[in-house]
Computed example of a mutant assay.
Amino acid sequence: MSTIKIRSVAPEDNKALAQVIRDVLIEMGVPKVGTAYEDEALDMMYETYDAPRKEYYVVEDNGKIIGGAGIAQLEKESSEICELQKMYFLPEARGKGLGSKMMSKCLNFAKEQGFSKCYLETMPYMKDARKLYAKVGFTSLDAPMGDTGHYSCQAWMIKEL
C-alpha cells in the first residue's frame, strides 16, 4: 500500500532530493546551463530553505522522495513577491493530484508569510505543468522578473495571492 505524505525537507533528504530534481530535468530535456540544474542550492536544499519566509516540501512515498516544491522571496524584487521554486515530480508521482496538493500547500505558506504575489519560471514545452499553474490562477508574463539566474527558462507566470 502506498503511503504518500508531504512534509518539510529534512537534512537527510538533500542527496535524494538533488537526484530527483536532476533526473526530472534531464528527462524533460531542460538545458543544464541557465536552469535549476546548476543551482548550488540543489545539493543543500535543507540549508537553503532553513530561513525565514522560506519553505521546501518533499513528497515521500514509503520513505522514498518522489518530488518536491518550495517557496522563497523572489531575488531582487519587492518583499511582497515570492517564487514557487523547484517543483518537480518523478514519473511515478504524476497523475495522482500531488501537483495540486503541493501547489496548495506552497501557496498557503506564501500567504501566511505575507506575500501578495507568487512568480514562477518554467519551460514553454512543459505543458502539463503550465496547465496546472493556469488552473490555479497563474497568468503568463512577457518577460522574467527578479534575478533567478535561470536565463534558459522561457516561460514566466504570476499569480495574485
Rank of each mutant, 00 (worst) to 15 (best):
K32N: 15
V33I: 15
V33E: 15
T35L: 08
T35A: 07
A36I: 04
A36G: 03
A36L: 00
Y37A: 04
Y37N: 04
Y37V: 02
E38M: 10
D39F: 12
D39Q: 07
E40T: 15
L42S: 08
D43K: 08
D43A: 11
Y46V: 12
Y46M: 09
E47H: 07
E47D: 14
E47Y: 12
T48A: 03
T48M: 02
T48K: 06
Y49I: 05
Y49Q: 06
Y49C: 05
Y49W: 05
Y49N: 03
D50P: 08
A51S: 02
A51M: 07
A51D: 11
P52V: 04
P52E: 10
P52G: 01
P52N: 02
K54A: 08
K54S: 10
K54W: 05
E55D: 05
Y56L: 03
Y56T: 02
Y57D: 00
Y57T: 00
V59W: 01
V59Q: 03
V59M: 05
V59S: 08
E60K: 04
E60W: 02
E60Y: 11
N62P: 05
K64A: 11
K64S: 06
I65Q: 02
I65F: 02
I65C: 00
I66C: 03
I66K: 03
G67W: 03
G68V: 07
I71M: 15
A72I: 06
Q73K: 12
Q73I: 12
Q73T: 10
L74K: 06
L74Y: 09
L74T: 14
L74S: 14
K76V: 14
S78G: 03
S79P: 08
E80L: 15
I81R: 01
I81K: 01
I81E: 08
I81F: 04
C82Q: 12
C82V: 12
E83H: 03
E83G: 06
E83Y: 09
L84W: 07
Q85W: 04
Q85G: 07
Q85I: 13
K86P: 01
K86L: 05
M87T: 11
Y88N: 09
Y88A: 02
Y88Q: 03
F89W: 09
L90R: 13
E92W: 04
